[in-house]
Write a protein that binds this DNA or RNA. Structure first.
Lengths: 208, 208
DNA sequence: TCATCCAGTTAACAACTGTTCTCCGTAATT
DNA sequence: AATTACGGAGAACAGTTGTTAACTGGATGA
């Protein structure tokens, strides 16, 4: 069971989380490769040297942010992809899931979109690994679907990664539309839905 | 006709280009938002203050890089999308075009992928505008295709943007595979081709 | 109760940053 | 031939950066 942390470890985790939160906030207007260690500690209200008690470097903190942003997302993806509704409903629910997630954690989404191709190698790799996991998981769920009969393993993974990339694109669009008018947001929803539907249509007629 | 530039203007453009080239090289290992003005001038071998003769700021230089990376690409896109071959050949030629471009200008491709969601707003906007132009142009070409009869304008643009995003994803994959084994590169080719084909299949059966 | 541990502090380091102002040499203009 | 325009150099500015070392004080465990 969960052992109650001592005062000491609890306090440590608290400042560690404060560092992560402050970094994420600062990253809304810059990239990780320009984020300064002193900048983060200053925002938290702690001495610069305290940073080293928690992270070896900014890149290390970035890797922790990747875990925080994507680590807890795997179960959600699985259940959404494997929903038992009809096709149209499933797509709509997936888009609502994305929209809701972007609303709830915009800074996390921005961080992932920004650092996926960003200037810090270990962070790029951490994101790539997580997305590869998503791809595998989506593939596993797709394989259970009767529509996937006759598909090769490679093509299943190909389709899964196409879905994953499309979800990221959609999330990024929602992010840009966060402060836009409701009509604009609705338009983004429509486009995202049609793009996903088109991919699904292609999926159904793939074996011709 | 082209008026021969004076010695003065020619020399100015030369150092300006040297600044752009040096910046692009430095950006292979970092993001634009962490690129220093002095860093760039040092790489060129010129005084820091000379930078201001060419660019107002690093963001300004970034915008110029966007123009350099994407500005000359529009005609290529148009001719590739509107090729008169059969479907399968067109897709293969598109992928070869992308692969060739990544081979020839890897730093430009990396820059666009990195700064599309990067930390410098004006640069993000410049890239977004260029990609929106690509979307419009692809849409125009798609509209000429007999397959597009009965399509709404919105859906045509939706599909065009789907293609554009997919091309960027593919370019990014080629970039990662640049130093990989030939087998790995071939695998990336296969995946990209299948993904494009699947989208095309969806396109053909969209009006059901 | 006492010794140990350890998250966080303080001070200092050399190196770096963007930006201003003043100046120079030469190409361009008259 | 004389004057102007201008790309670039030089020096100096106040601030910033990452990293080191030695230190403090309160929680921890014997």
């Amino acid at each position: 069971m969960s052992h109650t942390l001592g005062i000491r470890q609890a306090q440590k985790q608290k400042t560690r989380q404060a560092l992560l939160d402050a970094a994420l906030a600062l990253l809304e207007e810059q990239s990780l490769s320009s984020l300064g260690l002193r900048e983060v500690t200053r925002a938290v209200g702690v001495a610069p040297t305290a940073f080293y008690r928690h992270f070896r470097s900014i890149a290390d903190l970035g890797a922790a942010l990747v875990e925080e942003a994507l680590g807890s997302l795997h179960p959600m993806i699985r259940t959404t992809v494997s929903a038992a509704d009809d096709h149209g409903q499933r797509i709509k629910r997936a888009i609502e899931l994305i929209a809701g997630h972007v609303d709830a954690y915009p800074a996390h989404v921005r961080f992932i979109a920004r650092e996926r191709h960003g200037g810090v190698q270990p962070v790029r790799e951490a994101i790539r690994d997580q997305l590869a996991r998503f791809g595998q998981e989506v593939k596993d769920e797709l394989a259970k679907d009767p529509v996937s009969e006759g598909w090769s393993e490679d093509d299943l993974l190909m389709l899964a990664n196409l879905y994953v990339d499309q979800m990221l694109i959609t999330a990024s669009l929602f992010l840009e539309a966060l402060e836009a008018s409701p009509e604009e947001r609705e338009r983004v929803c429509q486009v995202a839905e049609h793009q996903l539907r088109l991919i699904s249509v292609g999926r159904e007629h793939w074996l011709d």
